[in-house]
């Protein structure tokens, strides 16, 4: 099953400089696992050390943030659009 992954500029160097990728997998977890197999250097930007979704990465399926769906278990179906956007965060602390 193929979905479309939109890669933000800042993550492209770790993903073959692609802006859009066709990705396989029935869940977000599977999609990210295959991505990190293909592009091993992207792992540190996508997943935390324990394999959970990176704290400062937003992953959307179509219009929805997967943190409010099923996280890595969020289902992905044919023609879904997956968007990755690094969180914009910081502060005076």
């Amino acid at each position: 099953m193929a979905a479309v992954l939109r890669v933000p500029t800042v993550l492209r160097p770790a993903m073959g400089n692609n802006a859009v990728l066709e990705v396989e997998g029935s869940t977000i977890g599977e999609v990210l696992a295959r991505l990190t197999e293909t592009y091993p250097t992207s792992r540190v930007q996508l997943l935390d050390a324990d394999g959970s979704l990176h704290r400062f990465l937003n992953v959307y399926v179509n219009d929805d943030d997967v943190r409010y769906l099923g996280g890595l278990d969020t289902p992905v179906t044919d023609h879904d659009e997956i968007t990755l956007l690094p969180a914009v965060a910081g502060g005076s602390q």
Binding site: P8, N58, Y60, D65, R67, T83, L85, A87, A89, G91
Partner: peptide, 14 residues
């Protein structure tokens, strides 16, 4: 002391 842009605003703005 810290901030984070709302992920929904982030996607909609892009």
């Amino acid at each position: 002391r810290v901030y984070e842009i709302d992920p929904g605003v982030l996607l909609r703005t892009f």
